[in-house]
Design a protein around this nucleic acid. Structure first.
Lengths: 226, 226
DNA sequence: TGGAACACAATAGTAATACTATTGTTAAAA
DNA sequence: TTTTAACAATAGTATTACTATTGTGTTCCA
């Protein structure tokens, strides 16, 4: 059995693309290979020209799917957050305890990927590396307000709100549920990045995934305790 | 009285520049105006050509001080962390309590700037905005390992270690002092950014500075409690 | 079965970017 | 006085991030 999710498709809001890349094989190739190429080259050195060469087409074709490199990044990141939200809803569906749901959310944010939740042309593990290293660049721009108005960050915001609600259920008096969730989400990313590249900034060992989850779980539950 | 610090100069490691910008008036103009222009245009739209026009010189002159736009960013950020470390050492100099020193560190990381600690040609408040919006771009690159080897992130790492030691003094058993410090440092940045641009991701009100300090102080002291 | 519509390859071109290299002038240091 | 330094001025390169146009094969559907 290849996947639990043969009939599930993660979708991304229409506004993000010019033409739905899920609707054609060329489009799927663009997604699949852009993930591999951004991971390999980094966002700065990644160009539509190089991507076009890799999939045997031309820049013009890619531009018919995505307005710009920036919008392709927004697409990949939105897909990632929608995927994470899907897994969160799935794995908390029959759980009553808000504490337990929050625990699961932190586990997912820390980067735990189950192999039976994969999609045909998306390398989730590689995509996660891209999200760690590049997602901040999607909003750290002068266009952030305009982009936000267009709803480009909606996937991320919705996921954070969902997790924030677990916290509010556990302790309605806690003053900073949204800040705590975004801190954990972002922290998860750069603690992974630091453990790989700037290890003196972290106590998390690159090879031991459980440590990050432990650090964040400890942080959150101590913070929100009544 | 213009400044407490007429005889103090914040220096940046030699490796970061080709020619010390503090050594000439042109160099100081480059620093002063690059801060203003990066803040105005954002790092992506900022170019040496535009900076050269602003200070009535040419690209070539700026290239004699800095190898690239990236190195200029590294310079500004290193200067910022050195400045923050100086203020930390200054304001904790005659304080014995590690708790109180940690409190002060968090206050500084949250962005509190005293007006009597300014330097002639550096707009500290504007520089802080740059650090919030652009500093992650200094290390989120494919060159991070090479840059780290060159010592480009030493200022940041040294400051974090210093604060981490306060935590280790308070609770030597706490497992994640370095991760906690880097989480607070980074969190301070994007909570400020979120409060301005993506307010649904935070409970911090852009206009109320004390909230961020309160959020982070609460987070840290609950985390490290024995 | 014919015709429209679509997907895309191929080609060309543009303004801007991130640099590098060279030369000549002026002013200050040895 | 000579040398050096600082820098303005100019020119030039490869690459990037696009836009525009045209032609061809395939698919849809009436």
């Amino acid at each position: 059995m290849r996947s639990l999710l043969a009939n599930v498709r993660i979708t991304v809001d229409e506004k993000v693309y010019l033409k739905d890349p899920e609707s054609t094989t060329k489009g799927q190739q663009i997604i699949e290979n852009s993930i591999l190429l951004i991971d390999e080259l980094g966002l700065e050195s990644f160009t539509f020209k190089k991507l076009a060469e890799k999939i045997g087409t031309t820049e013009a074709t890619i531009y018919r799917y995505f307005e710009s490199k920036h919008m392709l990044l927004v697409y990949l990141i939105s897909w990632y957050w929608n995927w994470l939200e899907y897994r969160l809803v799935f794995s908390t569906s029959n759980i009553a305890s808000a504490e337990e749901k929050l625990r699961i959310a932190i586990r997912l944010l820390s980067g735990k990927v189950e192999n039976d939740m994969d999609f045909a042309h998306i390398s989730e593990v590689v995509l996660q590396r891209i999200v760690v290293a590049e997602s901040a660049k999607a909003y750290l721009t002068k266009e952030v307000d305009a982009d936000n108005k267009e709803g480009f960050f909606f996937s991320y915001k919705r996921l954070c709100k969902r997790i924030s609600m677990f916290i509010q259920e556990i302790n309605p008096a806690y003053k900073y549920p949204d800040s705590l969730v975004s801190t954990v989400a972002e922290s998860a990313h750069y603690q992974i990045f630091f453990s790989k590249h700037l290890p003196s900034l972290t106590n998390i060992d690159d090879s031991k995934k459980g440590q990050l989850e432990d650090f964040l779980t400890d942080l959150v539950f101590k913070a929100i305790v009544k």
